[in-house]
Each structure stands twice: as structure tokens, then as C-alpha cells.
């Protein structure tokens, strides 16, 4: 733990529980956590541990069975594993739609959308439709669209899981740059230990059935890391050991 003063809370989750069927097994059980403003938090766990459910509840897409969630800035932007771009709109118009639904005036949307596409280095592809873009480019358009929502909190649900390793590596760098430039609070759900160790300032490990946060690592931010670096590898080994311990506990 570092000694610096904690930033103001961006997301406060208290005593959160979720069951999909009344009387069924809880998917989430008594999850309590506070995420500071501007933090980059990775939520890590095996598939089925409820991490996406937790993210959806924070996003307001699902309702908790018990407990409370508070997002200080009111709302959150969300990015999914599929880019979920509207296939009949060009990249620019997809971003413009987010601006429009946010209430940006018509005459300013075009330039703002182009500027956001430039942030993800896609200004040249602005007039292309999603099917003409590669998977990585689509996720970058989705990132630009999420930025267009102009919300302090950005929730990401395994956004790079379907991409190849080379593309993913560049997108890690892209996301880190965006985070440093915009000071967004990012909650990043993943099942990839190395990805979590590469990106997060804080890594939260979730257990399965019921989903709980069982461990936490804080990583001092000493500037950009690389996924191949020994520090990331050391941390990944430590986290993986813990993760396996949780899996063994599930088998028992």
C-alpha cells in the first residue's frame, strides 16, 4: 500500500449481492469495494465468477438483489467484448450518435467525432463502415465512442478478449495513453492474468460461487509497463498461484 492520500471515491459498492433466480445460488455475495477517481482497476477472475455481472450492475444494466452501488459522476461509459457498433453507420456516425444522445449540438458533432477518432488513430477510417474494419479497429472505434460519452467512469468488459495478441498489445498501449491523457476512472474486467498485471494500478481477484473479492494487489505506477517485462511476469505468477488456490477451493 502506498502512503499517498486516497483520491475521492468514483465508485462505491457496498454489501452487493445478486441472485438471478429467487432462492437460487448467489452469483455475487457481499461485494464491497471503493474505487478512487482516476484509478485503473482490473477485475480478474475465472469465467463464471460474476465479474461481468458486477460490471453490469455498476453500469446500471442489471439491478442488484441487495446492497448499493454509487457512481459519483452519475453515469458510466461502457465497452463490451463485441464492439457493438451499429453496422449501418460509418465509424464517424457511430461516434456522432453517442455525441447526439449526449446532447451535443449538431454543428459540433462532426468535428468532435473526428477529433475522438484521431485520439485512437483512426481519423483516416472515419468514413468506413464496421464490416470494413478489423476487429482491433472496431474496438478502437468503440473506445472513441465510449470517450464521446464524456463520462468520468469507463467500464470495460473483456474488451480485448477476442483480439489476437499483437493487436491486443497495441490496444493496451492505446488504452493506457487514453487513461493518462484523460484521467478517466477505468474498471477493466478480464480473465487474462497478464493483461491485468500489465494494465492495472490495482488488481482485484474474484472467487467463484459465490463471487467475492478475495485478494487485491496494488502496483506502483512508475510509467508505462510492457506485458513482457519481468515485473509483470512476477506479479502474474503470484496472481495465478492465488487464482489456482481459489479453483482448488471450488473443487473441494
Amino acid at each position: 500500500m502506498s502512503t499517498r492520500t486516497a483520491p475521492p471515491a468514483a465508485i462505491t459498492v457496498a454489501g452487493l449481492g445478486k441472485r438471478f433466480a429467487a432462492g437460487g445460488a448467489p452469483v455475487l455475495d457481499d461485494v464491497t469495494l471503493t474505487i478512487g477517481s482516476g484509478e485503473f482497476v482490473c477485475l480478474l477472475g475465472a469465467s463464471g465468477c460474476g465479474k461481468s455481472t458486477l460490471l453490469n450492475i455498476i453500469a446500471g444494466l442489471e439491478r442488484p438483489t441487495s446492497g448499493t452501488v454509487e457512481v459519483a459522476s452519475g453515469n458510466a461509459a461502457v465497452m463490451f467484448q463485441e464492439s457493438a457498433l451499429l453496422p449501418w453507420l460509418t465509424a464517424r456516425r457511430n461516434v456522432e450518435l453517442a455525441l447526439e444522445l449526449r446532447g451535443v449540438r449538431r454543428d459540433r458533432r462532426r468535428n468532435e467525432a473526428l477529433a475522438l477518432l484521431d485520439v485512437v488513430n483512426l481519423a483516416d477510417a472515419a468514413e468506413k463502415r464496421p464490416h470494413e474494419l478489423s476487429g482491433g479497429m472496431r474496438q478502437r472505434v468503440a473506445l472513441a465512442r465510449a470517450l464521446a460519452q464524456d463520462r468520468q467512469v469507463l467500464l470495460m468488459d473483456e474488451p480485448f478478449a477476442a483480439l489476437d495478441a499483437i493487436t491486443r498489445d497495441l490496444l493496451h498501449e492505446q488504452l493506457e495513453l487514453v487513461w493518462r491523457q484523460t484521467g478517466r476512472t477505468i474498471v477493466f474486467v478480464t480473465h487474462n492474468v497478464r493483461e491485468a498485471a500489465r494494465l492495472g494500478q490495482r488488481v482485484l481477484l474474484m472467487s467463484s460461487r459465490p463471487g467475492r473479492i478475495v485478494n487485491e494487489w496494488r502496483i506502483d505506477d512508475t510509467g508505462p509497463r510492457r506485458i513482457e517485462s519481468p515485473e509483470v511476469a512476477t506479479l502474474a505468477i503470484e496472481i495465478t498461484d492465488q487464482l489456482r488456490k481459489e479453483l482448488r477451493r471450488n473443487a473441494a
Binding site: N121, I166, E173, L177
Partner: peptide, 23 residues
């Protein structure tokens, strides 16, 4: 930061060109 940004721009442009062949 600026240097990292330009470098990333070049890398992404290269990958994009590879992955989106002219149909």
C-alpha cells in the same frame, strides 16, 4: 508521451494496413 504517441500511431497504422486489405 508525445514520442510514445507518435510511435503507437505508426504501429497501429501499419497493423491496420495489414488487416484491412482492399476489398
Amino acid at each position: 508521451d508525445a514520442r510514445g504517441r507518435t510511435d503507437l500511431r505508426t504501429l497501429e497504422a501499419g497493423l491496420d494496413a495489414l488487416q484491412t486489405g482492399d476489398v
